[in-house]
Structures are given as C-alpha cells and as structure tokens.
Write a protein that binds this DNA or RNA. Structure first.
Length: 245
DNA sequence: AACTAAAGCAACCGCAGTCCA
DNA sequence: TTGGACTGCGGTTGCTTTAGT
C-alpha cells in the first residue's frame, strides 16, 4: 500500500519525475548535493541519537532536507562503516559471483561485501562490470554468451520458473535437473533461519547438495557452513573462466 | 584553448513490504 | 482486519568530471 504522506509522489505513476514529492515540495526543503555543513549536522545527530525516524529527523536535527534524502546520505556516504575508494579486484570478483547467483539484488549483494553500499555496487555494475562482460561477449543479465542470453531467459520465464530475479541460468548445483530452491538459498545468504532440508554449498571443485542442520531451528548465522560457503565465493574458481582473460 | 561527448556517481523517484495502533 | 506511517529497494536521472578532437 502506498502512503500518500510519505516521501514519494502520491498523485500518479504516469507523472514520471515531474516535480518534487509531497514531503519535499516546501520551498524550504533543499535538494541536490550535500554540503560539508549538512554532512556534519546529520552525522553528529545520527551518531548521537541513532538511526531511524528519518521522516522527522530533519526537523529534529535542524536540517532543511527531506527525511528520505537524509537516510540516503547517511547510508551511502556518512556511515562510519562505509568504505571509500576503488573497488578491489577481490571485491569485483565477489560482485560478479553474487550477481550471477542473485541478479540485481543490490542490497543483498552489498550485505555480503563489507563497507560497500548497494548504490555503490549498483553504480559499479552499471558503469564497469556490465560493460566489461559485454566486451567479453557475455550477457551481463544472464552471464551467458550474448547470442543465447536473451532467448534462454525468455524460455526460462516462459517455463514459469518461480524465481523472479536471480540468474535463471545458475545451474542446479548437484546437476540433477531438479528445481533449484532459490527461496532457501536466499534465506541462507541472508543469514536467517531456514527450514529447507537441504542447501547448496560450494567447494573449490564446484557446488553440491549438503544436508543441513537448519531443520533443528538453528540460526544459520551460527553455522560454519555459511562462512565456508561465502569464503568459497571469494576463493573458488567456479564460473570465473567466463569472465577472466 | 575551446568545445563536445562520454563516463562516473550522488541523489532522486516510485513502489512494495513491514510495523503498529 | 484495516489502513496510515515508516523504511528500504531497485531503477533512473542529471550534474560533474574527464577524455577526445
């Protein structure tokens, strides 16, 4: 449901980017790039009072900004944990691997790359990695050779695959041809409790099915398998032959 | 040096999901 | 159960910087 008073346009989806949104319509609300003073005010306030209640934060902090803009500025730039600087080669590898598994789920991908934000990864993907893949003849959407990518994706959708976003071409890890359990896999990646009965994991030699203890109600955060899996994403060579050289 | 095109990236937008009274 | 308030996500825009002519 949409919230008419929230920081978004309530009138019509046909009005594409035509004018400010309701909570940002006041002339007193500033837009555009943030100044150093604004950054300092926001940073000091959030570090003192904590995150949350973004809608009312500008007034409380004394900022002439939309709450949504404050949240974005904090999350993408001011948070102490945000890492600045160029994306390292190992981070790039990890982005490629995660995108291959998850598709455009930038937030989920960012959650697995310490210090990087979803916006940063999204921008990096759109400006660097997608072009790099295209230059190598690989469809950045499917991670398959360009001449087949569109057609195979269409077939995948036509077959009614329930997974809406992640890469449709990610192989069933055990090669059995069975439906890949994306919901389980995503829960697994998100570090939440799952009751899947089985889960995919990776080794240096590829993926295989591993019977998990998840059925016992144990948080997968506590499970070493998680870290083994994620480490393998960083280290193994699965799929890398497609994007290197 | 001046101009144009392309690239990079911060910020904005609409929408959906969740929370809670 | 309902609906308003709030948060977070992914897509997109447009400003700034850089490269090319």
């Amino acid at each position: 449901m949409r919230n008419p008073s929230s920081c978004s346009s309530s009138s019509s989806s046909t009005l594409k980017r035509k004018g400010p949104t309701p909570c940002c319509t006041k002339d007193s609300v500033k837009r555009g790039p943030w100044t150093a003073e604004e950054d300092a005010i926001l940073s000091n306030y959030v570090q003192k009072e904590g995150e949350g209640k973004w809608r009312t934060l500008p007034q409380r902090a004394g900022l002439l900004r939309c709450g949504k803009s404050c949240r974005l500025r904090w999350m993408n730039y001011l948070r102490p944990s945000v890492k600045r600087g160029a994306i390292a080669a190992d981070e790039e590898d990890l982005i490629l691997r995660l995108h291959r598994l998850l598709g455009n789920r930038w937030s989920l991908i960012a959650g697995r790359i310490p210090g990087r934000t979803d916006n940063e990864i999204k921008n990096y993907w759109n400006t660097h990695l997608s072009k790099k893949l295209i230059g190598q003849g690989i469809d950045p959407r499917t991670h398959k050779p360009l001449e087949n990518g569109v057609q195979e994706h269409a077939i995948h959708v036509a077959e009614g695959n329930p997974n809406p976003n992640p890469n449709p071409n990610f192989p069933n890890p055990n090669g059995s041809g069975e439906q890949f359990n994306y919901e389980c896999f995503e829960s697994y990646l998100e570090g939440i409790e799952v009751d899947c009965g089985e889960i995919w994991k990776s080794t240096g030699e590829g993926f295989f099915v591993d019977q998990m203890e998840c059925n016992e109600g144990k948080s997968v955060e506590e499970n070493d398998e998680i870290f083994g899996f994620l480490n393998s994403l960083m280290n193994d060579d699965v799929g890398l032959h497609e994007i290197k050289e």
